[in-house]
């Protein structure tokens, strides 16, 4: 593994995250989140996890962005006056964040923690599908169940209520 390349990608990740949090418009924030996911996808590929990477790319930077963007467009945009007030407000609150992040980062990099782990015996390299279907069957059932719960949730929350 090439360490410098890793560091560059990680820096890009942090910058994208900072932009996500600091940017003024919610829409850009959602796009920033998709960017973070995309960069994370590269990292997952580098860690020998191609299937998880594909999932991350399609689901997180795809589906979740769609969900966020449609939520943002469904909620009312603010008036101009509110936006200006909001901007000033935000500037005073979010101003500190980059400094905190940089300071913590440097402080932590001064620490030099090295693990000395007796790595447990590595399994025979199996395919991830096999692991998922045979060894982690319970999680699959769990996935189905939570998807069902999500379906009922959406059915309840988005049903136009016959309100009293």
């Amino acid at each position: 593994m090439n360490m410098t390349l890793d560091i560059v990608i990680l820096l890009a990740l942090i910058l994208a995250a900072l932009w996500t949090v600091m940017t003024r418009s919610l829409l850009r924030s959602a796009i920033g989140l998709a960017l973070v996911s995309a960069i994370l996808t590269i990292l997952l590929f580098r860690f020998d996890s191609p299937l998880a990477a594909v999932f991350e790319l399609s689901v997180c930077s795809g589906l979740i962005s769609v969900v966020f963007i449609s939520t943002i467009s469904l909620t009312e945009p603010m008036t101009m006056k509110e936006v200006i007030k909001h901007m000033k407000d935000r500037l005073t609150r979010f101003w500190y964040l980059p400094f905190i992040v940089v300071i913590v980062g440097t402080a932590l990099s001064l620490l030099d923690i090295r693990l000395n782990i007796k790595v447990p015996p590595a399994e025979t390299q199996k395919d991830v599908r096999e692991v998922l279907w045979n060894m982690r069957q319970l999680d699959l059932i769990g996935q189905v169940t939570i998807l069902l719960a999500g379906v009922f949730g959406v059915a309840i929350l988005f049903k136009e209520g016959r309100k009293k």
């Binding site: 982690r136 319970l138 999680d139 769990g142 996935q143 169940t145 939570i146 719960a149 999500g150 009922f152 949730g153 309840i156 929350l157």
Partner: peptide, 17 residues
């Protein structure tokens, strides 16, 4: 422990709803 987490999430999501 990971399945435990999965089932906790299932219960949580149905509780939210």
């Amino acid at each position: 422990v990971f399945s435990l987490y999965v089932f906790i999430e299932i219960t949580s999501v149905s509780s939210f709803m």
